[in-house]
């Protein structure tokens, strides 16, 4: 009796897995469709890719919808009853980025990424010969965008400025000196370039790496290790809450 029940249960599980195997492609498409929809909703995608690229996400939605429709219209249970390991493996690999997406959302590139990406300079874009009028990239509405400051550095030299960004202390740490940084994104966070300004404060600051701060002071150039870098002699450094994930990067 028990053997018969166990056998029945095993058969039932096998059948369910087989059905699941059959509809696995649709589950993959629907998962990705949900992921892209979730990203588009409330602009969450800006935590990963350039806002101007929203049509790409719409394109992905449309194509995934059409794939689901095509799958349904051509669906047949002919190959039912066969458990295809290959199909499950394909699906599992395609699920990995979605799992990462939901795990990682809310985080952003910080001082760790800066330490790997920063070159021995603070300027991702060469400044020579660029007038402020000529280079007016789209940035956030904030007047204290690091991108504006760095690209229009000559224009701001000697002027009072305000800037917001994250703290990077590096080694060795002089509590009065630190670097203020943000990442500028061209297409996606994988190509994010760090924008860095040295900050010299009047008093010792207790901020740690990745703390968000607002700096006010005089913008100028100084030479560090034989290289000209942008710096702010700060008279005010105050903590600010981290912006929402979609507003942490600057966009070129």
């Amino acid at each position: 009796m028990m053997v018969a029940i166990t056998h029945k249960m095993r058969e039932s599980i096998k059948k369910r897995i087989a059905v699941l195997t059959l509809i696995l492609p649709a589950i993959v498409y629907i998962t990705w469709l949900a992921a892209y929809y979730w990203l588009l909703e409330a602009g969450r995608y800006k935590a990963f890719i350039q806002p101007k690229l929203w049509p790409l996400l719409i394109l992905a939605l449309i194509l995934l919808l059409s794939y689901i429709a095509a799958f349904i219209s051509h669906f047949s249970g002919e190959s039912g009853g066969v458990l295809k390991f290959e199909g499950w493996l394909q699906a599992a690999i395609l699920f990995v980025p979605v799992v990462f997406l939901w795990t990682i959302y809310g985080q952003s590139l910080g001082s760790h990424a800066l330490s790997k990406r920063a070159l021995d300079t603070n300027q991702p874009f060469p400044m020579a010969g660029i007038s402020p009028q000529r280079s007016s990239p789209a940035t956030d509405d904030n007047a204290s965008s690091l991108l504006k400051l760095i690209i229009n550095a000559e224009h701001f030299n000697g002027k009072r400025v305000a800037a917001e960004g994250m703290v990077y202390r590096g080694e060795p740490s002089d509590r009065r000196r630190f670097r203020l940084f943000r990442f500028v994104v061209v297409c996606c966070a994988a190509d994010a370039l760090p924008l860095v300004i040295w900050v010299e404060s009047k008093v010792e600051e207790k901020f740690n790496n990745d703390d968000w701060v607002r700096i006010e002071g005089i913008f100028s150039f100084e030479t560090i290790n034989g290289r000209q870098v942008s710096s702010i002699a700060a008279d005010s450094v105050r903590p600010i809450p981290a912006p929402p994930p979609g507003k942490r990067y600057l966009f070129f």
């Binding site: 990705w32 990203l39 995608y45 935590a47 990963f48 890719i49 690229l53 790409l56 996400l57 394109l59 992905a60 194509l63 995934l64 794939y67 980025p97 990462f100 997406l101 795990t103 990682i104 985080q107 952003s108 590139l109 910080g110 760790h112 990424a113 790997k116 297409c187 996606c188 966070a189 994988a190």
Partner: peptide, 21 residues
């Protein structure tokens, strides 16, 4: 992990629509 995850997800999210196309 945050750096790894963000870069990984960003590359896939940006490339996937092109891949679909």
């Amino acid at each position: 992990f945050h750096t790894l995850g963000i870069i990984f997800v960003s590359i896939v999210l940006e490339a996937m629509p092109f891949m679909l196309l």
